[in-house]
Design a protein around this nucleic acid. Structure first.
Lengths: 210, 210
DNA sequence: TCCGGGGTCAACCGATCGGATGACACAGGC
DNA sequence: GCCTGTGTCATCCGATCGGTTGACCCCGGA
């Protein structure tokens, strides 16, 4: 006799995609779709109410709570369900945030459906799954120590992406222009750029900010 | 007796999403999924080979041909199928390019599945469908004459997002620095920013390029 | 305890940018 | 034929930025 089906909660803000996932997963062997959520808030609520085995979570959820935050809240509960992230992007920042938030696995939407089914089952047993491109990035990160920015540098960068000048950034963060310049220099070095425009481009490209 | 089912070709580069759409649409009344494509090139080829009534097209297709280009090629053929764009984004640039490429409708993935079914049937009969947010943007564009950049201004902006200085941009485009500055000034005015960093941010944010 | 990383600040200088203005050529539309 | 939009170029100047160097404080780990 087969083990009981994995009870699954699907969270994705795009109704069409969500409906597609429900239709797809509903027909998968050994998987039972327990519910669906269109926002992070809803996912957190339903995770408690429905007590599924696995939550399939998109990271980009439009307005409101994002997928990483929802994952954090869901996995914080005692006897929490496993969270399997299913998203489009494989940037370092996204992966890191998801894993730190307690995700059990990280799958790309570009993955084959069979891989998704397998990952859901694996997650139910607490076994992690990473899409190959994601695994590559994790490995690469291991090898190259830390290309990441400090908290303060991210603050500066955030202001920079608003198009503010040094004086305005200084005022916004209650520090001197000199300090702003110091941070900017380090940011340029870390990002491998020479100008503020380049820094903004890299920041947006690699999603370095929330 | 019912009319024959609408024959549909689904194009999306994310295998999981594509499989979900197939599962979803396969169970919809009056719709028959004729095939699926994971790239623009494949979609163009299958559009000819399968001669579907409607092609459901994602705009972001990762590497290779993008959805707009595929739409252009598909609709260029005599007796071509209708192309219904189904995507995540509702930026002016995306909408404009899709419509210019010959799309019959523009739906967001956030739309309800029933709307998608209705839009597919509408498209089969040549009737356009626009998601409400998309319609809003089109209307807004009608009212405010010109928020768009000229070809040359986009060239400049593209260089700017590489973090290049005025001199480098000038050399790259074989024009003088003075000309670069003139274009930049107009770009700033159009985008409502004051600095190059701000311009890059807006460009990335609103996907004004590529 | 010493050391290193993170965060803060200062002063100086050359290079670059942004602002303002004016000009010319060419295209297409009225 | 005129006018508008686009693309090109120039000059001048003040403001800002980027580069460099040096410094101080705090904290936590070796």
């Amino acid at each position: 006799m087969n083990p009981p089906a994995v009870r699954l909660l699907v969270c994705d803000d795009h109704a069409v995609v969500r409906a597609g996932l429900l239709a797809l997963l509903g027909s998968a062997p050994g998987i039972e779709v327990a519910g669906e959520a269109g926002s992070g808030e809803e996912a957190v609520a339903l995770a408690t109410k429905l007590a599924p085995d696995v939550v399939l979570m998109d990271l980009q959820l439009g307005a409101g709570m994002d997928g990483a935050e929802a994952t954090r809240l869901i996995t914080a509960a005692p006897d929490a369900p496993r969270v399997l992230v299913l998203t489009t992007y494989d940037t370092d920042a996204d992966i890191t945030r998801a894993v730190e938030a307690g995700a059990t696995g990280y799958l790309l939407k570009a993955e084959r459906p069979e891989e998704l089914f397998a990952a859901v089952h694996a997650a139910a047993r607490g076994r992690p799954t990473l899409s190959p491109p994601v695994a590559d990035r994790v490995m690469a990160r291991m090898r190259s120590p830390r290309p990441s920015l400090t908290t303060r540098e991210r603050d500066i960068l955030a202001q920079l992406t608003q198009g503010l000048g040094n004086r305005e950034i200084a005022r916004a963060l209650f520090i001197s222009e000199a300090t702003v310049k110091t941070h900017l220099r380090r940011i340029y070095d870390k990002l491998g750029v020479e100008t503020r425009a380049g820094a903004v481009a890299v920041a947006k490209e690699q999603r370095l900010l929330a």
